[in-house]
Amino acid sequence: MSDRPAADPAVSPAPHAAAATAFMIDVRGLTKRYRDLAAIEDVSFSVAAGEIVGFLGPNGAGKSTTMRILTGCIPATAGSVRVNGFDVFEDPHQVKRCIGYLPEVPPLYPDLTALEQLQFVAALKGIRGRQARAEIDRVVQRAAVGDQLSRLVGNLSKGYRQRVGIALALLGDPKVLILDEPTVGLDPKQIGEVRGLIKNLAGDHTVVLSTHILPEVTMTCQRALIIAAGRIVADDTIDRLAASHGGKSLEEIFLSLTSH
């Protein structure tokens, strides 16, 4: 758990914040209620810099809700989230500058071409001119969407849309990547590529990815968070999870933890 030196001084954590927590992401007592219905209840976890964490749970367990709160898209009813030392609610601007987010539905404008979409998001992230071109080239290559750049996003296949979405998240080389089900809609070959991509991000980036496909966690993540009915039910490395559950496969652990 080493605190890596920040690449960009502008987004380096405030010193006191860094002293208080060495974690890149620190979630404390997070609760989100829609009227009387709790989507998540008292969720706490933390992610160290450079870690890749799998967020695991059945559909409707609260994975997406947690991620949307993490990125500042929706407010929490209670609890706090600190990213890179900044509070999401108090200091959203700083947090957003170091986060790349791929929502459940890739946020694409069907009437723009893929390239225009990338240029637009680059501008939103404050990347200008020559730097923007280089950065777009880089993410296009990593997400392998180079052959579809001049096509309208609305005409792209689901797999390509997902990949453009990943490219958008990667733009600006953010320290933290929050990926909500990044492999949905991809064919097996593409899934392999995306998993490889995510693995390559390890070290430089902190990644939280959600999925309900178990092998994905085993293949890409160092650690798994299992969430069921809005509560964290397990938080450990994959090896230790297996050990503590008597050598059962992750699948068995998952089923036992999430069934009621």
Partner: peptide
């Protein structure tokens, strides 16, 4: 409706 607003909300845009 298309939830592209999440793009605006998750990038440093006021």
């Amino acid at each position: 409706r298309t939830r592209t607003v999440e793009l605006l909300l998750s990038t440093p845009v006021s």
